[in-house]
């Protein structure tokens, strides 16, 4: 069994699908609901604004010409027949950490599960890397064969974590945004700790959120887990991102890591604010990694990660926002 197969039972996946079919018509938000109302590029008619409608659909110029002030007109479009879901995986080598519970594995499981749900609804799925690296930069999935292609792509990404390449730049994110249909959504699976000096990710995020499309971020946070590892080791040689290993033996220091934690929080806050453009779904609480066990091996750690995934994934707000079911 491939390691990237999501640790969700078929029964759990069936429950998620049924929940979506039950809940989707009643949910007021999400790309699937908007698709039914029609948000294609083809204008159909004006209608009166009602509570719950997306304020971005109001035609302010036409509303100003209304006899009664305050009557807002909403533009409606021809309905889309298909939604596009773009899943973007953070494929930096840091995602393979922690060694015993790699976040990349969690991200790939989430990606595979989302693909199953989307393909079940006959949606189009685009898989993309956030950074340059092994594997196809962009994979478009349709129909029955999509699951197998997603598995192969995920295995390639997983195998690529072992290639000690220097830090790679962003992939062609504009191309991903261009592939999205108006009734589309993008999901980014990442720890969101990457550096974005050229604002490429921010631009991508904003571009995705135009035309009433949404961007969901599944942030995988293992900072406390890794700090606990360092605290237990007490003395260690820390490997920095430039792969330079200090010759000196270093010592754990609570104050230093408090500072680091604050810096991480500040970074994510800045990134969240920069990326926000009306359609951003990035919960304040990320998916937090459990603390390490004393004798964690890769095998034991992976098993623990599997149980965490099986417990967390069905409750992710992301699913509800994508109208893929989610918490009740």
């Amino acid at each position: 069994m491939p390691i990237t197969d999501p640790p969700l039972s078929p029964a759990m996946l069936d429950r998620l699908v049924l929940r979506w079919r039950r809940d989707a018509p009643s949910l007021g938000a999400g790309p699937h609901q908007r698709r039914r109302q029609g948000h294609s590029l083809e204008f159909r008619e004006y209608r009166a604004y009602q509570r719950g409608d997306d304020i971005r659909g109001v035609d302010w110029r036409a509303s100003a010409r209304q006899p009664r002030r305050g009557d807002l007109l909403l533009r409606s479009f021809e309905a889309e027949q298909q939604m596009t879901l773009a899943i973007v995986i953070d494929n930096r080598s840091e995602m393979a950490l922690p060694e015993t519970m790699p976040r990349l594995l969690y991200a790939l499981w989430a990606m595979r599960a989302l693909v199953m749900l989307a393909l079940d609804k006959e949606d189009e799925v685009i898989l993309a890397r956030l950074f340059a690296g092994p594997g196809e930069a962009l994979v478009t999935l349709h129909g029955a064969g999509g699951g197998a292609r997603a598995r192969d792509w995920a295995e390639t990404i997983w195998a690529g974590r072992l290639i000690p390449d220097p830090p790679a730049g962003f992939a062609d994110l504009r191309r991903i945004a261009d592939k999205l249909r108006p009734a589309g959504a993008a999901v980014v699976l990442s720890d969101m700790l990457f550096d974005d000096p050229g604002q490429k990710f921010v631009q991508f995020a904003r571009q995705v959120q135009t035309r009433r499309r949404s961007l969901s971020v599944l942030q995988l946070d293992s900072v406390q887990h890794e700090i606990a590892l360092l605290r237990r080791a007490a003395e260690f040689r820390l490997i920095r991102p430039d792969q330079h290993e200090s010759d000196d033996l270093q010592q754990f220091d609570e104050a230093v890591f408090r500072t680091a934690t604050d810096a991480v929080a500040a970074h994510t806050t800045r990134l969240r604010q920069s990326a926000r453009a009306g359609g951003l779904d990035w919960p304040i609480d990320p998916v937090a990694w459990p603390l390490p066990e004393p004798e964690d091996s890769f095998q034991a750690g992976t098993e623990r990660l599997k149980s965490c995934f099986a417990q967390d994934f069905p409750r992710l707000p992301l699913l509800a926002n994508l109208s893929f079911g989610g918490r009740e």
Binding site: M95, P98, E99, A233, L238, I239, F252, V256
Partner: peptide, 15 residues
């Protein structure tokens, strides 16, 4: 030890 947020970690004291 490699950690994912190493770039946010200030210099550590020597053992």
């Amino acid at each position: 030890i490699a950690i994912s947020f190493a770039r946010f970690v200030p210099p550590l004291p020597q053992a």
